[in-house]
């Protein structure tokens, strides 16, 4: 998993790309948390558009960063989530967490494509 970070006065943006599992989440978590503390950012934007695989480790990553930002009086934003990733996140009810810039929409359902 490769990450790219951009800290601006308006907040910290982290672009994730590759496979997000327990193995990659560990160092990712450390890097992101260190950057949040270093930049004293109040908004953390996690961009998942480059993530090709995610298991429940991604849920833990989001929940943990949500709590971290909350404890610092800040806000976590989650963007660029594909249908596939959303399916995993929904198992934890993450679509109800106030972290979305726009409400997560399942595009396949919207188009009326039958899914199993």
């Amino acid at each position: 998993m490769v990450i790219r970070m951009d800290a601006t006065p308006s907040g910290l943006t982290v672009w994730l790309s590759g496979e997000l599992d327990h193995h990659s989440a560990r160092s990712l978590r450390e890097q992101v948390d260190a950057a949040v503390v270093r930049s004293s950012a109040t908004v953390l934007r996690l961009d998942f558009s480059g993530v090709t695989f995610m298991d429940s480790s991604g849920i833990g990553l989001i929940m943990g960063r949500y709590r971290l930002l909350q404890s610092r009086g800040g806000k976590l934003l989650v963007v660029g989530v594909s249908d596939r990733l959303l399916r995993v996140m929904k198992l934890a009810g993450l679509e109800r967490l106030p972290v979305w810039e726009t409400a997560p929409v399942d595009t396949k359902k919207k188009q009326g494509v039958t899914r199993k």
Binding site: D55, S56, S57, I59, G60, G64, V88, L91, A92
Partner: peptide, 21 residues
Amino acid sequence: EPLFTTGGDDRSGLGFSVMES
């Protein structure tokens, strides 16, 4: 059980739920 974990803060406790789903 969903959300049950002994794995610490950053484990969601959803591993078996994902396998089941």
